[in-house]
């Protein structure tokens, strides 16, 4: 039998042990990876480049997520014409659950489903809902964890107004 380096097994074990603790989460000031590189169910907006994007991760079983929808619809009404695009990414296991809620919420912004939960795993969100505000250059500028009604809406408005003022690259 050939001689093998015992360090090889040790290194492999170490990598196995550390792998789950090193996710590549979305962080402030990181560039947003292209959304079309993930398998998302539903149609993404044709034009995302140069837009201010609100990328929201939600699920129909999450109470605060459901409460955030009227606020996002309000933001969509206020700022869609000025360059804001909202992309709400559902992480529901079942498409019917998502569709039932979206129908009742009656929203006009883009809703897609992360069926394989690849995008949300890449974002590695720590709570539901989590949303990312992305500037016109495609850089993640603000991260919102959870949703606290009017307080969060006001914060969104201030941040979106600031990002919309910034010129596209």
């Amino acid at each position: 039998m050939s001689r093998r380096n015992p360090n090889g097994i040790r290194i492999a074990l170490l990598v196995l042990a550390l792998a789950p603790t090193c996710p590549a989460a979305f962080k402030q000031n990181d560039p947003l990876p292209p959304l079309d590189s993930f398998k998302l169910e539903g149609k993404l907006p044709d034009r995302l480049k140069g837009q201010v994007i609100l990328l929201d991760f939600w699920a129909s079983w999450c109470g605060p997520c459901r409460k955030s929808f009227p606020a996002m619809q309000e933001l969509h009404k206020q700022y869609a014409g000025r360059g804001l695009t909202i992309v709400a990414v559902s992480v529901d296991d079942k498409r019917e659950d998502m569709e039932r809620f979206v129908k009742s919420a009656n929203v006009s912004f883009t809703v897609v489903r992360d069926a394989g939960q690849e995008l949300v795993a890449a974002a590695d969100v720590s709570t539901m809902p989590t949303s990312f505000l992305i500037d016109r250059a495609g850089k993640i500028r603000y991260v919102h964890k959870g949703f606290a009604s009017d307080e969060t809406l006001k914060q969104y408005q201030e941040e979106i107004q600031q990002l919309l003022k910034e010129p596209a690259p």
């Binding site: 789950p20 079983w61 992480v91």
Partner: peptide
Amino acid sequence: APVALLLLLPLTGGCAQVKPWQRGTLA
């Protein structure tokens, strides 16, 4: 060594975290 590794591997599943987006069933 490989046998021990194979026996230990199932134990790693016990440490799996339920991520926030995987809590649909729990919710």
